[in-house]
Design a protein around this nucleic acid. Structure first.
Lengths: 160, 160
DNA sequence: GCTGAAACAAGTAGTGT
DNA sequence: ACACTACTTGTTTCAGC
């Protein structure tokens, strides 16, 4: 079985929204045996399509109220790796990407409040050697957030 | 029990990385009964600290190779809501935020490739009434990605 | 490639301290 | 607030089609 079929797609649709949904119930929904569900999920894991299951934590509820994307400009492009190492040490930075465009790096920060965000940027990020400056895009609100579409995937081969 | 204690913290640390970890094993690790694990997780859900469990899907493996953050400028600020509605209809847009700074909206796109990204922006986003322009920050690579820190949370009250 | 039954493991609820 | 027990449910494996 080396292609991604309807059953894989349906299982994926269900477990990515509820990773604790009983396999037996998925089986019932799809009218297949629960051992097949088990086999398919095993295959999806082996192929790297799915990794682990994670509980979604509401950051606000544990005290992080300020979400912000931040673009980082470097003094010189070759500082990139060192700067990434420096950023990694700041726990409030949850994501870090190399990007095209006006910035060399693009990060996601969750801070307690705006004051805390300012402190992280001015006292920590700006002091990393190689950082020329930052631009913050503070998120006032998240309008929506959703997983990738899976239509048009059935009957395809696995990628990569 | 109206505060967030050491047990809550430890449970949270474990399940957010592995939502399918057996409660009985968590109980064993923390040397508590598994019914307590059950009670605490129930409480964390009720308080809204955790929501559902999700399987992490590797977007690349299902054919989405281009990840990009995109800042959107509006012709006039009052178009914001309409534009959000328009963006919602484009399935490749996985996240949409109201932000401070140079852009009104900030979105996350997963496209098949750069060509597909261009098409989404030029044929779809730019045609939404109210959109003045966009700036793309294509992610060449994600250096790291991690959940929020939980230190300093134990013995705190729940937020909100 | 898939099913079904059997063995095993985990989730849940109630009761008592 | 917690643990223990009994009960229900889900997971996993494997022989057989």
């Amino acid at each position: 079985m080396n292609h991604f079929d309807y059953i894989d797609q349906q299982i994926l649709l269900q477990i990515r929204e509820d990773a604790r949904k009983p396999f037996s119930q998925i089986a019932e929904d799809l009218k297949i045996s629960n051992s097949l569900v088990h086999q398919r999920i095993k295959k999806l894991k082996k192929k790297g399509v799915i990794d682990n299951a994670e509980f979604v934590v509401n950051e606000r509820k544990i005290g992080y109220r300020t979400k912000s994307y931040v673009g980082i400009r470097l003094r010189e492009a070759r500082y990139a790796e060192e700067v990434v190492e420096g950023l990694k040490k700041i726990p409030e930075i949850l994501e870090c990407n190399y990007v095209s465009g006006n910035y060399a790096l693009f990060i996601l920060i969750f801070a307690v409040d705006n004051h805390h965000l300012r402190e992280i940027l001015y006292e920590q990020v700006h002091r990393i050697d190689g950082v020329a400056g930052t631009d913050s895009f503070i998120c006032f609100d998240t309008n929506f957030r959703r997983p990738v579409a899976l239509d048009s995937l059935a009957k395809q081969d696995f990628y990569e």
